[in-house]
Design a protein around this nucleic acid. Structure first.
Lengths: 341, 341
DNA sequence: CCGCTTTGCTAAATCCATTTAGCACATGCT
DNA sequence: AGCATGTGCTAAATGGATTTAGCAAAGCGG
């Protein structure tokens, strides 16, 4: 049975050198004094035997496993998750790390489990991802590896990656303005007065601020602000229908694509055309947005980039505490009128 | 610095026993002859020190790591992926395993990388997941751990988990029939004659067969079969628009929810009501399906269950080669007329 | 009381790579 | 020649668990 794996000792034997030499050469130590011939012999031997280091043995010795844990509250529920995971995955792959994915459902018991499981496996870092940006509960365990908060924040761990919501909010308004729309703009999904004191999340409030500041800068006010807590299509639909009974907006600034989706449905039923009659801008760049007719112009949530940035920060040698804001790209589609200015 | 982790030796020392004893007790060996008092002492010591075994050390010795690798072609691109991952994750958690997620983009080089990486880490099993069901390329490496194919098949690895498409196909037709619809049914997304010889995938052809058999059993034929290769909303829209120019169907049997989405758009524009004028049934149970108005009745792809089944099979002691067909549930919403029979 | 089995437990080897400490030889300088 | 320095390499310890082989004491039958 040639079944056993090739070990470093086998390589060393074939190369006619010690395992010490083989180890130093294969791990590429810098100030080793081994001869070029030794290097060649070891590399050749390793290649011809198809040597692959035993990660467990290496981890045992070095306390590093070239792996990171991605601990998130929900992985499936949302279109968000996969973008974050995918981004993280690709950055991890680039850095020759693997990624353990753990889901906690937001339950403290499972969070503790997840952290312990990860730490048991000598992960080199932890990413706490939240599907809705917020202050994240992190179990109160001794964590002796770097931590990055992804799409969330934590007082204990000051490095976080968030979308640049303020700027994104501004952009949505600027898009409207530069399309020549300066009145009868309705905000769909939030009403500042009604929601006074209610807190949605870290990031969403920044989105609101960006929107409000940009409106003020342009000297505009909303014709109406329609509040709803869950930004799901049916609410967008209901709100828009109700709106259309009393007024005819020129534009809908929707707080996410699902609301916009509902709005499309209500507008469609009412025989109102987009963008000729009513223009729309929205947030997220959901898969949905590209399915709509006309395509929905939206300020995208940069999930993949956030995911990969999180991993890069985690693995970076100098990790400066700070919140990293990732740019929210404007995704132009057809829901705004062309401006010929 | 009490920083160092607690080791088994520490536990043994506190319990006043050997590490051998501690190990045997904590791993719950069956036919050990250690006394009940010894058991208690070791467990107490472990608890009071907060002992957690070093997984790397254990893996080194036993060649088992309580981890599995989930190797998929695409994780983000599709709504499918997260369901599969989530299901797998929860089954893994239940079995006290962790899951490495690896993405290959379908590129052979990355597939090889992924398998080697996984094997290097002593994973206890490999899941190859395909986002589109198909015969999957598996790199020709010596793989000495169990493998399960998820949403795909491979000649080399006979254990696979697939949706029960044939039965699902039948159900879609039966739904129509039991709603009292027996004529003017149009199949959206496939035309048997035009696509003769073209192969979409393992599973989709079974869906077709189920549909055709059920139609035949009910003595029905399609009023039209509209072919298109990519089942995306815009094709559903175009096809439906074209269809409506020449005929008025009673029902659309859509081959997936995205096509159905496009069909909704075309129907809406034409002022045709669902389900009164045209009924729809579809496949997948995409997130989309619940957003539509009325909700889309669809035969769901059981992603989560597939994912967890794959892990269960992987970890099951007796692994019988076979393809495991997971039931596709009927998800009733409002796109079929109520039948008062 | 002797020899045999059972009970309860442990010493030491093992898994494999990394790393510390240091050996043997060559070279350079005075 | 004598000593320091540099060069090229290795023996052995190490990390933390599991596992094999086996020891000492107690129990039992005759």
């Amino acid at each position: 049975m040639g079944k056993k794996r090739v070990t470093l000792a086998d390589v060393a034997r074939l190369a006619g050198l010690s395992t010490t030499a083989a180890s130093m050469i294969l791990t590429g130590r810098p100030d080793t004094r081994l001869s070029p011939e030794a290097h060649k012999k070891v590399h050749d031997a390793a290649a011809s035997l198809g040597y692959r280091p035993n990660v467990a043995a290496r981890a045992l010795r070095t306390d590093k496993s070239r792996s990171i844990a991605f601990i998130s509250d929900y992985v499936a529920t949302t279109r968000f998750a996969s973008g974050l995971i995918r981004g993280a995955l690709s950055a991890a792959e680039q850095a020759k790390h693997v990624m353990l994915v753990l889901e906690t459902g937001g339950e403290p018991a499972r969070e503790i489990q997840a952290v312990e499981t990860a730490l048991d496996r000598q992960v080199d870092g932890l990413i706490f991802a939240a599907m809705r940006a917020r202050e994240v509960f992190v179990p109160d365990l001794a964590i002796n590896v770097p931590v990055v908060m992804l799409n969330g924040t934590s007082a204990r761990f000051p490095i976080s990656v968030l979308p640049a919501e303020y700027e994104g909010g501004r952009r949505a308004v600027e898009l409207l303005v530069s399309s020549g729309i300066t009145k009868d703009i309705v905000l769909l999904g939030h009403n500042a007065k009604q929601e006074e004191g209610l807190f949605r999340s870290e990031t969403i409030s920044r989105r609101f601020m960006g929107i409000r500041d940009a409106m003020a800068d342009a000297g505009l006010t909303f014709a109406a602000e329609l509040s709803c807590w869950n930004w799901e299509p049916n609410f967008g639909y209901d709100l828009t229908r109700k709106l259309l009974k009393t007024q005819r907006p020129r534009a809908l600034l929707c707080l996410n694509d699902r609301l916009a989706f509902g709005a499309y449905q209500a507008l469609g039923e009412a025989g109102i055309r987009t963008p000729e009659d009513v223009a729309l801008v929205s947030f997220d760049n959901d898969e949905l947005a590209s399915y709509l007719r006309p395509g929905l112009t939206t300020i995208g949530l940069p999930h993949e980039e956030m995911g990969s940035r999180a991993v890069e920060l985690l693995l970076a040698p100098s990790r400066i505490p700070q919140t990293n804001l990732i740019d929210m790209p404007v995704v132009m589609r057809g829901s705004l009128p062309h401006n010929c200015s």
